[in-house]
């Protein structure tokens, strides 16, 4: 597990449950992932698969209760975040920047952009006792870094005066202003048009390279993942189904869910409307104890529903959690 040893950030066997009136929902089931320094990692999944819950646990905004961290560890640069409290926790978390999903809902509509950005800077640099002037300087610099036109004037604008793409830039600036080492971006471009999306991704890529950051990008957009990331984790119903380098995973998907997901995307080649994956995401209350994809899988066997598949190393960094690959770690007969 060299990948994990060198990791800046890693989640190990994280289990998160929600205690509701109708019962306990075991949402995350032994989720493990790792992000090395300078790496761009994608976490892909559909609505309700637990990708945002994962993000919330990491940045500490999961409502507890009803949420409950049943087991697992989250390591950041050698410290287990889940064992920290108070100021120590705040210091470690300050090194993780969050880029939230919906730029319109994430800025406070009644405060000027500058006020919100300066608050963020003042807090994240609280040990440095910066003067108001220095804070303003930092705010202007970071807005310029994310390519916001006329940063000085935009400081006194309210969020409603900015377009969606500009708001997203402000939020990226806010995350960058704290000088984080890891960025977590939760669906950073779903609210944006493709042309703006491309601009925002380009900007994020540049900022990451310039500052040598790592990023964990959470999305359902496979095209974006293919263009942006180095490595990918595929998540289904709270379980990681497959992981590997982006190239391997797109060229040779192994898990039936990954294959189904890739086949569901309409193609520019015009092969007709995809069939999608039969069935629906299981209710977590009655989720199968084994592989949670088994009810929708066309190659399911008896063992699938009862026994949770372990991650199997196929080659390099390509791992899959699927009983099909248990013994013969060879090419899947239906690959492609």
């Amino acid at each position: 597990m060299t990948a994990e040893e060198r990791a800046l950030f890693k989640i190990r066997n994280l289990c998160v449950a929600f205690d509701l009136f109708r019962g306990t929902l075991p949402v995350l089931d032994h989720v493990s992932l790792a992000v090395r320094r300078g790496e761009k990692i994608g976490l892909v999944g559909e609505t309700g698969c637990g990708k945002s819950v994962t993000m919330k646990v990491v940045v500490g905004i999961l409502p507890i209760p009803p949420g409950r961290i049943a087991s697992g560890e989250i390591w950041f640069d050698g410290t287990n975040i889940l064992s920290l409290h108070g100021g120590r926790l705040q210091d470690v978390r300050g090194r993780i920047g969050l880029i939230p999903q919906d730029p319109s809902a994430s800025l406070n509509p009644v405060f000027q952009v500058g006020t919100q950005l300066r608050d963020a800077i003042r807090y994240s640099h609280r040990h440095r006792n910066l003067s108001a002037k220095e804070i303003r300087r930092l705010a202007i610099d970071v807005l310029a870094e994310v390519g916001l036109p006329d940063p000085v004037r935009n400081l006194s604008n309210y969020p409603f005066q900015l377009s969606g793409g500009m708001k997203q830039r402000v939020l990226i600036a806010m995350a960058l202003a704290a000088n984080p080492e890891l960025l977590i971006a939760d669906e950073p471009t779903t609210a944006l048009d493709v042309t703006i999306q491309e601009q925002v991704l380009r900007l994020m890529r540049e900022a990451i390279d310039r500052r040598n950051l790592s990023i964990l990008i959470i999305t359902h957009n496979l095209g974006l993942i293919r263009e942006f990331t180095d490595r990918v984790y595929i998540m289904y119903a709270g379980q990681i189904g497959e992981t590997g380098s982006t190239r391997d995973l797109f060229n040779r998907p192994l898990h039936p869910y990954t294959k189904g997901l890739l086949a569901s995307v309409p193609k520019l080649t015009g092969e007709g409307v995809p069939f999608g994956i039969p069935g629906t995401v299981p209710d977590y209350l009655n989720a199968p104890s084994g592989c949670r994809f088994s009810p929708r899988c066309d190659r399911t066997t008896e063992v699938c529903a009862s026994c949770r598949p372990e991650m199997i190393l196929i080659e390099g960094e390509h791992r899959v959690a699927c009983h099909l690959y248990k013994e013969e770690q060879e090419d899947d007969p239906q690959a492609g």
Binding site: V194, N221, L222, G223, R226, F250, L268
Partner: peptide, 15 residues
């Protein structure tokens, strides 16, 4: 617009 669509395969990229 066409050039900004993120796609999932090499084949599409060439289009």
């Amino acid at each position: 617009l066409l050039s900004s669509i993120p796609v999932v395969s090499e084949e599409e990229e060439s289009l």
